[in-house]
Nucleic acid binder design. Structure first.
Length: 334
DNA sequence: TAATTATGACGAC
DNA sequence: TCGTCCTAATTAC
């Protein structure tokens, strides 16, 4: 269920709780028993996300590659060091995003909301005994229990240290790779603004898009063109840019394509920092608070078919593109 | 209890 | 363009 922001957050979770520690791997479900044996008992040395792919490195040079697909998820349990959202926001106060929105005060709002107990997660400092499911969103499963927990359902692989466990279920990919194979996967991926926010990356994206006759709505979902965008961000980015999803890439003005890239970098950053796919920034405090609680208030067009466009009132259209649901405003995105 | 749905991606025609 | 794989939560009956 995740788009790029969640995969970066999950990689962070592994960096905080597993990197530098010896890990036992098993496959409670049995389907990954051979792969788990190749990595079992080694120290995790790195955790990285590239677009929607995650790579975990072990001390003998082999990697675990995981892609969650449409409904994969990681369940963490034990004494977990959680994302220090509040500390992060405090440490960055004053920075301003490209669009002129103060992302960090927004993050701080979210964190304050969390600490008020209205949302589910986040604390600072010491590990906390808990259970968390990380997919597109993160939710705390309240049920401390014993450690390690009994595997529930179809657990493809379990990673276990003295104090923390991580169960993977429903992935579309879970395999052991050598460094050359990892590099090959990364080489195929389009630029990920979370890893490379340079002008060169923007140039690369812009050049590729403006060369192709393919509809921009398909190009944004093509992971070799740009990494990390899924069905929600596709719809929202196109609405925010007032671009028709069917417009061929090569028909778009250069500035429009560059704006799409910069806006993706912007939304991805918000997603990584808040853990939410918040695509309506520029909200005031109360609106933001509401939107953080109710997904229905977070998007311009996604899952809003038949409802009035928030800008012009026209009914939002639902169509199909690339075998996925496409939402757009036929007037604003004419 | 069954059907539906999902924020992906791939390979065969 | 279609079928296929992966799983669980939600919705319908």
């Amino acid at each position: 269920m995740p788009e790029g922001h969640s995969v970066h957050r999950i990689a962070r979770q592994f960096a905080r709780n597993f990197v530098g520690r010896r890990v036992h791997l098993s496959s409670p479900q049995g389907r990954f028993a051979a792969g788990a044996a190749l990595l079992d008992g080694h120290v995790m040395t790195d955790a990285r996300a590239v677009g929607k792919q995650m790579f975990l490195e072990f001390d003998h040079g082999l990697w675990l590659r995981v892609h969650l697909g449409m409904y994969g998820a990681w369940d963490f349990a034990g004494d977990i060091l959680m994302d220090a959202t509040i500390a992060s926001a405090n440490g960055r106060m004053g920075q301003t995003s490209q669009r002129g929105t103060d992302v960090d005060s927004a993050v701080l709002d979210a964190a304050v909301l969390d600490s008020a107990g209205e949302n589910s997660m986040h604390s600072i400092g010491a590990p906390r005994r808990t259970r968390v499911r990380m997919a597109e969103q993160e939710k705390e499963i309240d049920q401390p229990g014993t450690f390690p927990p009994e595997p529930v359902g179809q657990v493809r692989v379990r990673l276990l240290t003295d104090t923390v466990s991580a169960d993977l279920r429903g992935p579309t990919a879970c395999e052991v790779l050598d460094p050359a194979q990892v590099q090959a996967v990364i080489d195929k991926a389009g630029p990920d603004p979370q890893l490379d926010d340079s002008t060169a990356a923007e140039d690369r994206f812009t050049a590729v898009v403006r060369r192709k006759p393919t509809p921009i709505g398909l190009l944004l979902m093509d992971q070799s063109v740009v990494s990390g965008i899924g069905n929600v961000y596709r719809a929202e980015l196109l609405f925010r840019a007032q671009v028709n999803p069917y417009a061929p890439g090569k028909s778009l003005p250069e500035d429009t394509v560059r704006d799409l890239w910069r806006d993706w970098a912007h939304l991805l950053k918000i997603g990584v920092e808040t853990g939410q796919m918040m695509t309506m920034d520029d909200l005031d405090g109360d609106e933001w608070r509401l939107a953080m609680k109710n997904r229905a208030d977070r998007h311009w067009v996604y899952k809003r078919e038949g409802l009035p466009c928030r800008i012009c009132g026209t009914h939002i259209t639902l169509a199909e593109m690339g075998a996925r649901k496409l939402y757009f405003c036929p007037r604003c995105q004419a």
